[in-house]
């Protein structure tokens, strides 16, 4: 979706600079430790009121990025400024306070709700932690919230397993909303849902965004969903951002060969069998990142130069960044 331009300000809600998250693997007496560069040097901003879509295939680091932004996994290095304040420097208590402002919705509506707690207990606990409303009003506050996300107030007394997948995802949304956040990270939030339910949840997310002036970071592997909901789209490949541009610009004129291939790979019901840019092979292992441009092993345009020099994410035209030596 494109929100009307006037809703968007140029003010940055989140500024990410050189964010890195490496995992150490293995290691022991006789084994060398291996390093997985899950997120490798990301720099981008999230504007107030926008929906920033992040798209990429499995292993590209998009989910790790979401967790690193929230400090659910401590970034290896890099700065994350939220309203001018570096989150990475906060101590436990300050961080818990900040978590009121930034929320996350996970993919799996089965794993992300505690099976032993009623929905009401779960939400009330969060409301109590942040003292959102006085104790007496907590129940009605939570029930209103449940109604707002399209559930019945009786859902308060139910356990997660009493709901269908779509309803659980609504509960997750209510949980995120409970603390009145400013930014919500949706990590594959609709990927586990059936098409018709997915459409319902997408519409709900947009309705809530308008109503509560939210900002979304919408992480997904599904390009058409990201295109539908985002104002700007970032494409990730092997821990790097390879392209970042306005939604219409990236769709009309994808600059990076990977983005082009990604778009052409989607089976589209509105077109007859279109010409595909077939990518060779699989995504290389993040344990063993190719030198130079990370995409050169699969890129149809790769040259000798690509193997040596890593391209930077640069403006190819206004508001359109791409990391490719040959992007025009």
């Amino acid at each position: 979706m494109a929100t009307p331009q006037m809703e968007q300000s140029t003010e940055n809600l989140l500024e990410i600079k050189g964010l890195k998250k490496y995992f150490e693997l293995g290691g022991g007496l006789f084994k060398q430790k291996q390093q997985v560069k899950a997120v490798d040097d990301l720099t981008f901003n999230v504007k107030k009121g926008e929906t920033l879509g992040i798209v990429g295939e499995s292993g590209c680091g998009k989910s790790t990025m979401g967790r690193a932004l929230l400090q659910l996994q401590k970034p290896t290095s890099g700065e994350v400024y939220y309203e001018g304040q570096d989150i990475a420097q906060l101590n436990g208590k300050q961080l818990r306070k900040l978590r009121k402002d930034i929320q996350i919705i996970f993919q799996d509506p089965f794993a992300s709700l505690n099976p032993r707690m009623t929905v009401g207990a779960m939400l009330t606990e969060i409301v109590a932690t942040h003292e959102i409303v006085p104790k007496k009003e907590r129940q009605s506050y939570v029930q209103n919230l449940l109604e707002e996300v399209g559930l019945k107030a009786e859902a308060y007394w139910k356990y997660p397993h009493e709901f269908s997948g779509g309803q659980r995802q609504r509960v997750s949304i209510a949980r995120a909303l409970a603390v009145q956040p400013k930014l919500i990270i949706c990590d594959e939030a609709v990927s586990a849902l059936d098409v018709s339910v997915q459409a319902q949840v997408l519409n709900l997310l947009q309705k809530l965004k308008r109503k509560h002036q939210l900002t979304y970071i919408f992480i997904s592997h599904d390009l058409s969903v990201v295109k539908h909901i985002s104002d700007r789209v970032g494409v990730m490949y092997l821990g790097k951002m390879v392209e970042l541009a306005d939604e219409d610009s990236i769709y009309e004129n994808p600059a990076h060969p990977y983005t082009q291939a990604l778009f052409s790979a989607i089976p589209d019901i509105t077109e007859d069998h279109k010409e595909r840019i077939q990518l060779k092979g699989d995504v290389p292992s993040p344990l063993n990142v190719p030198t130079g441009c990370r995409f050169h092993t699969r890129c149809p345009l790769a040259t000798e130069y690509c193997k040596q020099a890593e391209p930077a994410l640069e403006e190819v035209k206004e508001h359109h960044l791409a990391a490719c030596h040959y992007a025009e």
């Binding site: 818990r96 996970f106 099976p115 932690t129 942040h130």
Partner: peptide, 19 residues
Amino acid sequence: EYVEAGKASGISDFSIILK
């Protein structure tokens, strides 16, 4: 994920462990 979600909601470690 439900533990992660709890952490992300700012619930203290003590509550997460116990509740």
